[in-house]
């Protein structure tokens, strides 16, 4: 699948922001002036920016509002509704917290639940697509959830690290982050193993089933319908080299999990500001891995073109 930058950015950034909201809604993080402001603003900004990025690939932005209408059947519609609800609840929670200094745990819990549900809905957009077997594997929602939660934790950690110099002992404990990263890496490995096994053949799809000509013999695409390119090929027959994928995945793993893990642990001793580096590394790693999530996904329709 074509790894459109808008979608890669969207899924990573909103995941991060929503993850942050979940933790903040659950009451995590110091009840401190600057932290409150910064963390809440960051969470809303990330989620908002992600949301904006997602409209980047819309052909008709003026119709985007209609995406709220189909929550009964469409995961994308649900995602949109949940996202707005999550932001609204969290926004209210944040406002009361920042301005009034009160953390309404009921409101926070609701915001957290909505944030997690939004991540789940995003994940389901991909997980529901039978036509993309790599995505429709069991751990896809888990992958999105832990990624969001880990990112959110790191983001909160980074904020508290930044402001934490003056707030002794209030930083998000680095070992939490380390633990989350370890879990996230585990889920990523789980997902990766499932996805690797989910070629198009996993559902029985092949150029033979696509054309129904298998009964005659071995089928090979001879000529595409057009020598010119088309939307389908651009969108759904993205080809990424094996070697390149491997290298990018290694980079993603190191930046996304290993480096932040080391930095989080180091932060315990060397200071919370290291959490900022951990976050930056993690986000870069996630962008790489998310790019691969799309780029490596094969759509069954590309079988018609003899493409991956």
């Amino acid at each position: 699948m074509h790894p459109a930058p808008s979608i890669v950015l969207f899924t990573v950034l909103t995941g991060l922001g929503l993850g942050q909201m979940a933790w903040l809604g659950l009451g995590l993080g110091p009840d401190e002036g600057l932290f409150r402001w910064l963390a809440c603003a960051l969470a809303l900004a990330l989620a908002g920016a992600g949301g904006l990025a997602s409209t980047g690939h819309l052909g008709r932005r003026e119709n985007a509002w209609r995406a709220f209408s189909q929550w009964r059947s469409s995961w994308l519609s649900r995602e949109a509704c949940l996202m707005v609800a999550a932001m609204a609840f969290f926004g209210l929670y944040a406002a009361i917290w920042c301005l009034g200094g009160v953390r309404l745990w009921g409101l926070g819990l609701a915001a957290a639940a909505l944030a997690l549900a939004t991540i789940q809905a995003t994940a389901m957009i991909y997980a529901q697509l039978k036509a993309v077997p790599r995505w429709s594997v069991t751990p896809t929602p888990a992958l999105f959830l832990v990624t969001g939660l880990t990112g959110g934790l790191l983001a909160n950690g980074a904020v508290s690290g930044l402001v934490g110099a003056g707030l002794a002992g209030a930083a998000v404990p680095g070992w939490w982050a380390a633990l989350a990263l370890a879990v996230a890496a585990g889920v990523a490995v789980w997902w990766q193993t499932s996805a690797a096994g989910a070629g198009r053949a996993s559902q029985g799809s092949s150029v033979e089933s696509a054309t129904g000509l298998g009964f005659m013999g071995r089928v090979r695409s001879f000529e595409a319908p057009h020598t010119g390119s088309n939307y389908l090929l651009r969108e759904m027959a993205f080809e990424v080299g094996r070697k390149r994928a491997f290298e990018l995945r290694r980079l993603g793993a190191v930046l996304g999990y290993l480096a932040p893990l080391v930095l989080s642990l180091a932060a315990l001793g060397l200071g919370g500001w290291l959490m900022v580096l951990a976050l930056v590394a993690h986000v870069m790693g996630m962008l790489a891995l998310r790019w691969l999530f799309f780029a490596e996904a094969e759509h069954v329709q590309a079988l018609y073109y003899g493409k991956r």
């Binding site: 819309l58 052909g59 008709r60 209609r66 329709q301």
Partner: peptide
């Protein structure tokens, strides 16, 4: 009139039977 051109339906179709119009931005 109501399509927002998100492309998700084209992703969902196993057959490659939907194409986004490159100028109008509708499916």
């Amino acid at each position: 009139d109501t399509c927002m051109g998100c492309g998700l339906c084209a992703w969902a179709c196993p057959y490659g039977a939907r194409e986004m119009d490159p100028v109008a931005g509708v499916m």
